[in-house]
Design a protein around this nucleic acid. Structure first.
Lengths: 341, 341
DNA sequence: TGCTGCAATGTTAACGTTAACAGTGGAGGG
DNA sequence: CCCTCCACTGTTAACGTTAACATTGCAGCA
């Protein structure tokens, strides 16, 4: 006997309700909605009319349970307040939305353990695929995904060991090239401002070091690393410290534009001429960079495309059987040279 | 006979797998995880050990299907690139994450129809509750939610008709007060720069009009409304137009800080003294406002708290039975008066 | 001793959908 | 006229979990 429905408890229309009203079986309604070709035109139209009338919305849980396809993709990003990842998300949505995938966003807050926990939580939704930021995940975590047959694509970095599928660009090369640009302009006492200190910032730092070492200009005391989140205010602060400790410094490469805009603000407030007294370079080329005074030299990163291509690749893995030939998709970057350097 | 398992198809551990290994029934494992008090300490520990060993993750679809509780909340916001809504989301997560709710983010892109579609899509996840931005939803949409027994809370605005539950502040009052501030400072030819033109911008415009009308200073030709998204670049452009068409204008109230920062940038580039020749006020008090030159007068809006309180209210509706006494929670706002005015 | 009561565990069925297979009837070919 | 085949629709069972009720066994008490 069917379980007694609680009185007054509202219930959403089901396939059976629609089917009963049309006078067919539930599976026919299911087919009318999911494989329209299998149902005669006449009947299909009747069904769609009733679906509309009853406001029927399919129950994803039931579908997921029986079909072992959830049409859900888990996306783990370190922050929602960083435009970089929002742009990435936009690229992901662009690909997955029209294909009917639901995106489950996980905000790891730059915390490896939280990422681990989030991934586990998200697994309870049986995602068909996973998009991860960076390649720092524990091997056993990735192995677990592999064992479950859930494909994963890593974004924003490339993997030198080629162990995981990556879509991104070389953070190190970007850091190196922007530093080489400063060297080419004649600056020799070039500082590095790093905040947050996530793996990508550290890779940019690596690039910075290599460029300076190659030019014989590296000076460890000009590396300013601060674990706090990157903010304009922090850039102002760090500039202050730099000027006090190393007034001879002639250029700063900031690990991102927020910090760099703070440096520009600080220069403007304390009357430091940019770039005459101090050149400034940022990273990511956010909207504000081009409008700053002077306009900020930065590295334009292809984050929208990273999301787009990563989602496209994941889609292939989720739907096709072909394993991609190219495991490291390098989308490059572009120096944006402007007035600040 | 059980359906034949596909060879080589990886399968996640289920309650039964854990149960079999421990030598108990599935329901006991379920209870060990969800109502630990019902299971003896000894057995519980054994079970948890095996859960860990097998890497068991509960299947939410199955749980949702049978318990009609999904522990999912749908949140519809107009944009992810607008810090305002990211802050709101942070407030929401703060409340719902620790309670085990999964947040399903829908980006409506300021499009009422897309919002409608998104909500429908999200209904297929059987959310236990819904958080909406603004109160512009079609009555029949809200009626549909009500019929399904899904509680909804509206954010960022207040409802003069008291028809829906709202957590926010009066956008109109905010627009009025910032305009009154400009009037109090002696400005009389005060322009309005509006972009995007979503309902909240129009309410701020209303407040601006009322303040000017009350002071006998309203001039329709000083209202600049542009449907494009709000960006620094647009602010620069609009300033250009304003200076060409109404060089006598002595102040601008921008519907948000992006536009206002653009105006400041434009002034700096063309040598317009702020506030001597042109006063500028923004809205939302983003990070950049305080660091601009001169620092930007703005309206500090309680968006984090809006998210926090809206989620708290929704939680009550989803879990408790009590209908809240207060249907319009006004969190107010705060003028931040700085150098630009 | 026998009964009550409760703590601990088990059995059964149901949630809403789709996979897999089973008809059913009519068109078309020989 | 019969047989085949295909287009269309139906039946059954299963997905993994929990609600609801059932059972077991032992402590406590008269």
């Amino acid at each position: 006997m069917p379980r007694k429905a609680k009185q007054g408890m509202p219930r959403a229309a089901t396939l059976h309700d629609v089917a009963a009203k049309v006078g067919v079986s539930a599976i026919t309604v299911s087919r009318a909605l999911n494989s329209p070709d299998l149902v005669s035109k006449n009947l299909r139209e009747q069904i769609l009319a009733i679906v509309d009338e009853l406001g029927y919305v399919p129950n994803r849980s039931a579908r997921t349970l029986v079909s072992s396809r959830s049409y859900t993709v888990a996306v783990l990003i370190p922050s929602l307040s960083n435009t970089v990842f929002i742009d990435t998300l936009a690229g992901i949505s662009e690909v997955l939305d029209p294909r009917g995938y639901q995106i489950l966003i996980g905000n790891t807050a730059y915390d490896d353990e939280k990422e681990e926990r989030l991934l586990r939580t998200h697994l309870s939704h049986k995602p068909d695929g996973v998009l991860l930021t960076g390649i720092r995940q524990r091997p056993q975590t990735l192995a677990h995904l592999a064992k479950l047959g859930i494909p994963a694509v890593h974004m924003m970095e490339l993997d030198p060991t080629d162990a995981c599928l990556c879509v991104g660009f070389s953070q190190e090369a970007a850091g190196r090239q922007i530093t080489e640009h400063l060297l080419a302009r004649g600056y020799r006492r070039i500082a590095f401002f790093g905040a947050r200190l996530d793996p990508r910032v550290m890779q940019r730092l690596d690039g910075y070091r290599k460029a300076l070492q190659a030019a014989g200009c590296h000076a460890a005391e000009l590396e300013y690393l601060n674990p706090r989140p990157s903010k304009i205010g922090l850039g102002v602060e760090m500039l202050d410290t730099l000027r006090r400790e190393h007034p001879d410094c002639d250029a700063v490469f900031c690990c991102n534009d927020d910090l760099a805009l703070g440096v520009l603000t600080g220069c403007q407030r304390t009357g430091i001429a940019v770039p005459a007294q101090l050149a400034v370079a940022g990273f990511n080329d956010l909207e504000g960079a081009a409008w700053a005074t002077p306009a900020l030299t930065s590295v334009r990163t292809p984050r929208y495309r990273v999301g787009f291509e990563a989602a496209t690749l994941l889609l292939q893995l989720m739907e096709g059987e072909a394993t991609p030939a190219l495991r490291q998709l390098d989308l490059g970057f572009e120096l944006q040279l402007r007035g600040s350097s």
